[in-house]
Every structure is written in C-alpha cells, then in structure tokens.
Design a binder for these strands. Structure first.
Lengths: 160, 160
DNA sequence: GTATTTGCAAAAGCTTTGCTGCAAC
DNA sequence: GTTGCAGCAAAGCTTTTGCAAATAC
C-alpha cells in the first residue's frame, strides 16, 4: 500500500532553505523520520535515531520535533489515543490523508480523498480561516475485525 | 452563534436507558457538561461540578468521562493542543462538526458541513470501516487575527 | 445485602525546562 | 568568536490506579 508521502530527503533540504542550523543530531532524527515513513512516537524515534547517532537524548527529540512542527514539515497525530496519550509524527505528506484507527486490533489505515481537500478549502473560504494544519482522525472497527467479529479477543492481532 | 448540540438533559436519560448506575457525582458532572455546552477540560469540569457537589474528586471526573466516552455520549477533543496536552470534552452533537483553533488568539470556532458527513460515509463505504468516533481539527489563523495582522501580540485577545 | 463507585494518595506516562559544556557557522 | 544546540537531570502536567469506606439499587 503506497503512502501519500513526499520525496525523501526533502526535510533536510527544507531546513537548509530556511537557514535553520543543521546539527548532527537533527540530521540523524530527520533521516530516521524519513526512513520510517510515518507514525513514529517520540521514544521510538529516539531508539531508531540512536542507531545513527548513539548519544541523542529524548529532550533533543522533543526539541527537534517542535522545530519541525513549527516549520510545518511534520504533522503531529494522536491516532485516537489508541496506545495511551503519546503523540505520533510523520513527515508532511504531499496529499493530506485521514487516519483510521481500529479500536479492536490497533491497525492504522490511511485514507486519501478529494473531499478532504475540498472540506479544508471550504473552511478557509467560508470562515476566512488561514489553515496551517489539519487533522482528521477516525476511530472504529476495521473491515477485518468486523468480519471476524467475536472470534478475536486480543488487541494487536492484525499487524500495523 | 448556535451550536450544533443535542437536546439538554439527554445524557442522563441515555444512561438510564442503558441501565447505567446514576450516582450523585455522575449527575453533577453530567449536568455540568450539558450546562457548559462544549469544550471543557477535566479540571474545569471538576471546578464547576463542585458547585453542585462539593466533594467530587478529579479521579471521579476522569472515570466518568471514560464512561461517557465508551457510551459514545461525549466526544474528546485535542483542539490542536493549543493550551498544552490536556483534552476537552463536549456532549456529542446531533451534527458532527469541525473545530477550528486559532494559533494566535486561541479562539475555537465550530464548523458544520455536509462534506464532513459525506467524507465519513466515504470512509465507511470504501474501506468497510465501522466509524464510531471521528475528529476533524484545523489549526491556523482566524479571520479576525488575519485582518489585525501584526497589531496584536498576546494570546487570548479574542474571547472564546 | 451486594456489587459498584468514590475519595484519597500515590504513581505513571509523556513532555518540558534549567543549566553547563559543546558544536555549528 | 558568537550564537545557538545538546546532554543530563529534574520538574511539570495530565491522567491512571490501588485500596478501604460509602453508596445505589
């Protein structure tokens, strides 16, 4: 399943274009984000980034995420708080998409629709609102879980 | 500006219909939620509910919110984390609506559109996903802040 | 009378911050 | 050489949990 993500390596370039300082830690974190291709929480990002730069600290992870958010280069997701209150991050996609979170198995699906863009435009036009970020999340039961209704009890039975 | 909310007093009735125990604390909390008509965080809910029932505890607030969420009677919002990581709650509306959060002044607007329902239906149909909850939040700059661009510095200058 | 809910206090989870030394430009 | 970043450790804020006493039905 193809993800609606942007070209890899674009995050670093965007930072350079904006005259933001590129440190080795930021580089490691950004490369990790781009490699992951979506849905990383801060701690997972830390663990993976340490393969590239062993001394990265969690504080740096958060500070870098904050920076990237402010630059509009990544999006912050809640994924319906399926796994606690933490946040997830992904490189901003070329096309915005909805996240579907299955309460039963924990699967996260992505869904692209022209209606999404249309709706965002409608907000901007009719309310005079300059949209910088938007987030559409849906929670419920995925197709696979509905069809195996009642047979599966545990969470996480379908791979993410 | 009319809110797209349901009839007042319906939360308690819904609980009775579902044979959920009605305690005095739950009653106080529910009445407070309905009176507020939207966007209460847990601590504010506690403070207000204490006017009706002085001994309510924050733990009870969270437990009751959990109950109402599970029953699908309230919705949980993040409001783009405009004021920290806490959540906001509102009685589930008869029509689902988008929340627009202004990063500059903190104003939260609500926006109803047929496209929203259409999009949700599309998700259900094309992915076979049983939608239980959906949340569409938008962050950016509201009309008023765009027109007073650069003149206003502080947050919360426009009333919520 | 019995099962559930509550208050209290403590803990947990995620995120932010202060400070000093270090790295980028 | 300056300015801003990183690591470390500590604190912060929201939310959850264990347990004994109280409450609803």
């Amino acid at each position: 399943m193809g993800k609606p993500s942007g070209r890899k390596g674009s995050l670093l370039q965007s930072l350079r274009d904006r005259h933001v300082r590129i440190t080795s830690q930021r580089k490691a974190l950004i490369e990790t984000i781009e490699e992951a291709d979506g849905h990383l929480d801060a701690y997972t990002l830390l663990e993976r980034a340490r393969r590239r730069s062993p001394d990265v600290d969690l504080a740096t992870v958060y500070r870098t995420l904050e920076l990237l958010k402010k630059q509009g280069l990544i999006d912050e997701l809640d994924l319906m708080h399926l796994h606690g209150e933490k946040h997830y991050y992904e490189a901003r996609a070329t096309r915005s998409h909805i996240h579907l979170a299955c309460f039963r198995c924990g699967l996260i699906e992505e869904f692209v629709s022209p209606l999404y863009e249309k709706l965002t435009t409608e907000v901007a036009t009719s309310r005079g609102f300059q949209v910088e970020v938007s987030r559409f999340e849906v929670g419920g039961i995925c197709r696979r879980c509905s069809s195996s209704e009642g047979n599966e009890k545990s969470k996480g039975i379908h791979s993410v």
